[in-house]
Every structure is written in C-alpha cells, then in structure tokens.
Design a protein around this nucleic acid. Structure first.
Lengths: 112, 112
DNA sequence: CGTTTCAATATGCTTTACTATATCAAACTT
DNA sequence: AAGTTTGATATAGTAAAGCATATTGAAACG
C-alpha cells in the first residue's frame, strides 16, 4: 500500500473541544510538558491531541479535562443550550477570574 | 514475559455513564442491535461498552450519546453541581416524557 | 417442542491510541 | 553567544479499540 493516499481518515477531537483544552491549559499557565506530567501522558501525546492528530479514548480525555479543572457531563439534547449559556455566564469577564480567560466552550457543532 | 499476570488493567467507562447509556437506550426502546445499526457499530461493541469491557474513544462515545439524544459537554468543575441539578430537574415526571425514564446521570465520581 | 429476539462471549484480523525515545526550530533567559 | 523552554515531528514497539463473524444461552413467543 502506498503510504500517503488518503490521510483524511483520522478525525481527531472536534475543533471546539481542542481549543477549549488549549485554552484551559493556558489558563493554568501550564506547558504541554507540565500538563503531560500531571496527567501521566507523554508530552508528545498532548501535542497530538491538541493538534487533532489523535482522538483519545474517553477515559484519557476525562483525566485530562479533570486535571484542567473541568468535567465531561452527559446532558440531554434539549438542555444543551441552557447548560451552555449557564457555563458562558459563569465565565463572564465582569469581575476578575482565577486565570486568564476561558472563553469558547465546545459548541457542539452538529451538522446533520 | 508472562502474558496474564494482572488482567485488571482495563478500566471501561465509569459505571454511572454506562448505566446512563443503558437507560437511554431503554428509554428509546432500542435493542443493542438497533442502536448498533444506528451508530454504525457492531452489536458486540455496544455490549462491550455497556458491560465495561471496553473504554471507547471519545468520538465513538460522542456518536453514541448523540444518537441516544444526549450530548457530552465540557463544564467547569465548580459548575458541575448546578448543571447536574438542572439536568435532574428537567427529567422530572411532571408532564409526560418522550420515553420511559432517564434518571441517574453520570455522577462524576472523583477519587483524587 | 421449535423459532425468534435479546444480550453476552469467543476468535481472528486491522487500525490506532498509547508508550518511550530522540530530535528540531523557535522563543525566551542568562 | 550558550543554554533553556516550548511545541511539534519521527520512529518503533505494545496494548487495546474497532470490525466481522459465529456462537451461546435465556427469555418470550408460536
């Protein structure tokens, strides 16, 4: 098999999620190596996840987001907008926050 | 190297999540085969996921929960209780719901 | 009875997450 | 300048997800 025919099979995490991860890491002022050692993953893997070259297993991602101060919640479709605005509200720039900025939370782009 | 020393390495999804998945499937009155064909996974895999023999990749799980009428949202730790009660509230039996019951949403058991 | 449906298990195979290591070019530090 | 940090890339190996198929057993039918 030729080596580079269709390299478009990998999906990687949804863009929004990836950006949220990067933002969260920045908010904590952690380097990829910092985060990596905390999660117990090699730095290589953090890079791969953030750049979309890898779609981690759920448990791996769960560890990641928890160490970043987040959690992954299962929420019924109809409630998604409510939860999202709730989250957005709490991240408002009115007062001062714990870290830099944690803005664009994972928008659940559904295209179907 | 002996190959069968500790077979306790598999984690599988968190119990609560697994139960939520099963409940959601039942709520839709779908068999594992039904769900499997909708998601595009073999029934074997659904069984393995539900019984905790497999920890799927995030994207796989995301497909699953979306077809089941849910979504996976990234929410900041401090907001988790609020979101959870919001979700719990919306599942109240006041009116009549689309399907059976969708109770115990994924409790985020952290053991750090 | 036999048949169907459901869930779970088993085997073999392919793909890929994950591990470990080393390297690299930029940016920042001293 | 030399040295460090950061993010990314490369290679190679192992473990496990995912695919396909067949089978099992139990429960609910006829």
């Amino acid at each position: 098999m030729p080596s580079h025919i269709g390299r478009a099979r990998f999906e990687g995490l949804p863009e929004d999620l990836r950006r949220a991860l990067i933002n969260a890491r920045h908010a904590n002022r952690w380097s990829q190596r910092e985060l990596a050692s905390r999660v117990g993953l090699p730095q290589v893997h953090i890079s791969a996840i953030e750049t979309g070259k890898v779609a981690p297993r759920f448990n791996t991602l769960l560890n990641l987001v928890r160490i970043l101060g987040f959690d992954l919640l299962l929420v019924p479709r109809p409630l998604v907008p409510a939860v999202q605005s709730l989250v957005r509200d709490s991240a408002h720039p009115g007062s001062q926050d714990t870290a830099e900025d944690e803005r664009p939370l994972y928008t659940t782009e559904d295209a179907e």
